[in-house]
């Protein structure tokens, strides 16, 4: 378990002594994430995109675990025009047995992110904190560098998640539900006991009438199984599942994409996994966390990680 506290006040004071220009603001944790696009998928079930009612919800057998990660970054100072960012990325697995969730794995990294020159300018002021250098193929630009820092931290978090997911699967035969796609890892993409639940819809798998049908999916229904087109080489199968009625709300309300290994892509397995995910609708996650798509197990992982943030 990682538990090292970072005193931001002391850190900023030391940077000021080194002649850096202090700055202070929390950065958007979504910075650097994917922008909206359509990547047409290949339908594997049905001739055209169809809705399938999901049989009554049925809970996962014990044990089942939830993997999620968080990241947080703050702008500390500028070395000239180059920003220095303190980032915190963490991931954890919480396992459920007999209805009780308990943490089983956790990893965290606190990093000082910036151009090499900026990191050098900070020098020993940030002693003890790992550093992560940003690429220097382009001249310094505060906005671009901050976006790069966000992406770098995102990759660190992703790496932590993959590491923990693989560790968990090595030690447990239980199912592991991951907050996000499985395509990040070839091991994940091939694991028949991993289920990725993507809550973001920046990349949509259809366009035209199919997209409309995709987005109008009724509650407790799933779409046909399809193979999404991804940048990753890891092949996974996917379908959309509506957890809560969207009518009268946003069109994405309660809509998640379920990613599984190819062997779980049969209609029967899709129904079974959908039933189990539907059972996870309750208890509800708190309203502020996008409760309509965030499973409670994931919420507890996030809450656990945020409660133990080092600064």
């Amino acid at each position: 378990m990682v538990r090292s506290l970072v005193n931001l006040i002391h850190l900023r004071r030391a940077l000021a002594v080194r002649g850096l220009t202090l700055a202070g603001s929390a950065l958007d944790s979504q910075a650097g994430r994917e922008e909206g696009r359509i990547r047409p998928a290949r339908l594997l079930e049905d001739a055209s995109l169809a809705w399938h009612p999901v049989p009554p919800p049925a809970p996962w057998p014990d044990p089942v675990a939830f993997l999620d990660g968080v990241q947080r970054s703050v702008l500390l100072a500028y070395a000239g025009a180059a920003p220095l960012v303190l980032g915190d990325a963490a991931a954890a697995v919480r396992e459920r047995r007999a209805r009780r969730l308990a943490g089983v794995l956790q990893a965290r990294r606190v990093l000082l992110i910036g151009r090499p020159a900026a990191l050098e300018a900070a020098g020993p002021a940030v002693g003890g904190v790992d550093t992560l250098a940003l690429p220097t193929d382009e001249p310094p630009h505060p906005g671009r560098d901050l976006a790069n820092a966000g992406r770098a931290l995102d990759r660190v978090r992703g790496a932590l998640e993959r590491s923990l997911g693989e560790q968990y699967r090595r030690r447990s035969a239980g199912w592991l539900l991951v907050d996000g796609p499985l395509t990040e890892s070839p091991l994940w993409a091939a694991d028949s006991h991993l289920v990725g639940i993507a809550r973001s819809h920046a990349t949509l798998p259809f366009d035209g009438p199919d997209l409309e049908r995709f987005l109008h999916l009724p509650a407790a229904h799933r779409t046909s199984v399809y193979q999404p087109e991804t940048r990753s080489v890891s092949p996974v199968l996917e379908w959309a599942l509506r957890l809560w009625p969207w009518e009268g709300k946003d069109i994405f309300h309660g809509l998640v994409r379920v990613q599984v290994a190819p062997e779980n892509g049969t209609p029967e397995r899709a129904d079974l996994i959908s039933r189990r995910i539907l059972a996870e609708r309750a208890p509800l996650s708190p309203a502020g966390d996008g409760w309509d798509r965030l499973l409670y197990g994931m919420h507890t992982v996030q809450r656990f990680l945020r409660a133990s943030t080092p600064y």
């Binding site: 996962w60 459920r96 209805r99 009780r100 969730l101 059972a279 996870e280 609708r281 309750a282 507890t300």
Partner: peptide, 15 residues
């Protein structure tokens, strides 16, 4: 979360 059914409230998969 329980769809208005108190019985279902006790059957939630996670406490």
């Amino acid at each position: 979360g329980a769809d208005g059914d108190p019985v279902a409230a006790g059957l939630e998969p996670s406490e």
